[in-house]
């Protein structure tokens, strides 16, 4: 049985249709890259899978481990092993990173029938993962993402993923805004988590990230549909000829058009 099966998924925000029939099957152990120009629906797909209520699913179904994913609340999905690394991690003043992560770990453990971790066990767990992400331990005592640099926020996302050990990780533009060193660290953290039990969906606009996180499959999204699928060479082809080479219009931000 596939870990994730998306069938003819349609979603919209307000009156605007964004996903117009997505079909995708992801098996345990696989890494799938989803690429596409701005506005193609990549982030929407990531958010819909995590359960963001902003988006209305109008048709189709999603099976996760054979269960109806769309019926589940966001926290249930997380407890079942889905993790979304946010494109824009949210700042939460007043809640320490430590408290937040401990609450998350224990919510997931509770669902899996495991005992809650006490402060000491928790600290041992996170220290190891912080080392992996080259993160300063003072980040634990700071409020969640508050005043973090862009790079710190992205590292914090992958750090959370490392601690929560999901079965299906969805990385939404985790590379955006990272310098090459931060990108290597983030990719290293992601690669360390690759394994036969775990699947990943890597959403990105650029091929650059895929030099470091090498996907098994690449899908190109345009106007809410997957228009082309292939192996990792498809990403390289995109790098060569751009989305235009596939006949897809990619409207870049005016400042980026150089």
């Amino acid at each position: 049985m596939a870990l994730l099966e998306i069938k003819d998924l349609h979603a919209r925000v307000g009156e605007r249709g964004i996903l117009n029939g997505i079909d995708l099957t992801v098996n345990a152990g696989e890494v799938h890259a989803i690429m596409g120009p701005n506005g193609s629906g990549k982030s929407t797909l990531a958010q819909v899978l995590a359960g963001r209520e902003l988006y209305q699913v109008t048709a189709g179904e999603v099976l996760y481990n054979g269960k109806d994913l769309l019926e589940m609340a966001p926290e249930e999905r997380a407890q079942e092993g889905i993790f979304l690394a946010f494109q824009y991690p949210v700042e939460i003043p007043g809640v320490s990173n430590m408290y937040f992560l401990k609450a998350a770990v224990n919510a997931v453990r509770k669902q899996r029938g495991l005992a809650e971790l006490d402060a000491m066990d928790f600290l041992n767990l996170v220290q190891e993962k912080m080392k992996l992400m080259e993160m300063d331990q003072t980040l634990l005592n700071r409020p969640v993402n508050t005043g973090f640099s862009g790079g710190e926020k992205k590292r914090n996302e992958i750090f959370q993923m490392a601690v929560l050990e999901p079965r299906l990780a969805i990385l939404d533009e985790t590379d955006s805004g990272l310098d090459i060193d931060a990108l290597r660290t983030v990719a290293g953290g992601v690669n360390a988590l690759r394994g036969p039990e775990r699947a990943m969906i890597v959403v990105t606009h650029y091929q650059r990230l895929l030099n470091y996180i090498v996907p098994d499959y690449v899908h190109v999204l345009s106007q809410g549909r997957i228009v082309k699928s292939g192996g990792k060479e498809l990403a390289l082809q995109l790098e060569e000829s751009g989305y235009a080479g596939l006949g897809i219009e990619d409207v870049e931000e005016a400042v980026g058009r150089i």
Binding site: A50, G51, P74, E75, F86, P89, V90, I92, A103, A107
Partner: peptide, 11 residues
């Protein structure tokens, strides 16, 4: 922020 917390498993 609510969704962010929920997406980490917090009810």
């Amino acid at each position: 922020a609510l969704f962010y917390l929920q997406s980490r498993g917090i009810g």
